[in-house]
């Protein structure tokens, strides 16, 4: 394991408990992750892209949702640095992708194994925070995403956010502290990973801040659709 991976507490949960990973995500989001991911998949399919890349794909939920929703046959590729997650993704895709073409590869977002401009759309589901929250590698990740996205290509993100209203934000943070952290910790047995998730979710960007962040990184025409009173959002940006 490299210094980069060992310094990121979520790496352990990505490699050690993948069998429970989907269950934990559904429990801590009260099942809402499925609907939010579907909205992201719909955003990925806008303009009927031929080549779609799901980065940090984990157990493949975004890639599989895209495959289920597509009424044509795009080439869908999932990439993740956790081999155990990819093994689950491959098995799930065989059962659930309804004959669509999904390929999974073991790769790191910081050094993707694709030529420049390879993809019409890149999606990321609940992992953008991991790439950007107090992460010194963030510029490398964003540069690499821009490199493999074709000109005019779309980058779609579904991620937690900060509700705009202080009143709603209070209850959102209460939910993070009293439900997300304890249930994630109990189901995973990994306190560090869910402490990280709690801290990063409590302090991550609002939708407006994420839009500004993407603009500064080199994306344009950035839109945000908020869900659950602003606790999550789907962003779409053009290269």
């Amino acid at each position: 394991m490299t210094a980069e991976t060992s310094s990121r507490p979520l790496y352990h949960i990505f490699t050690r408990i993948p069998q429970r990973y989907d269950l934990i995500n559904h429990v801590i989001t009260l099942g809402m992750d499925t609907g939010w991911r579907s909205r992201a998949a719909q955003a990925c399919l806008e303009g009927r892209p031929n080549r779609i890349l799901d980065i940090c794909c984990g157990t493949g939920d975004l890639a599989i949702t895209i495959a289920k929703l597509a009424d044509y046959s795009p080439e869908i590729t999932g990439a993740d640095y956790s081999r155990p997650m990819l093994e689950i993704a491959t098995a799930k895709a065989k059962m659930l992708s309804q004959g669509q073409n999904i390929r999974f590869i073991h790769a790191d977002v910081g050094r993707l194994p694709f030529p420049n401009g390879s993809f019409d759309c890149i999606g990321i589901s609940f992992a953008f925070r991991n790439l950007t929250y107090k992460n010194p590698e963030t510029p490398k990740y964003l540069d690499e995403i821009l490199r493999v996205l074709r000109p005019e290509g779309r980058f779609v993100i579904v991620e937690s956010s900060q509700p705009g209203s202080a009143f709603i934000r209070f209850f959102d943070h209460l939910y993070l502290r009293c439900w997300v952290f304890p249930s994630g910790y109990l189901l995973s047995g990994n306190r560090g990973a869910y402490r990280y998730l709690l801290d990063s979710a409590l302090h991550f960007y609002s939708a407006e801040e994420t839009q500004k962040f993407l603009l500064k990184a080199g994306f344009r025409q950035i839109t945000a659709h908020r869900f659950f009173f602003g606790a999550a959002a789907v962003y779409a940006a053009l290269k």
Partner: peptide
Amino acid sequence: MKDSLIEILVCPVCHEPLE
């Protein structure tokens, strides 16, 4: 993996095609 995947893969270090 399908053969078609090889067409879009390159070395992650030097970006040269793979055999």
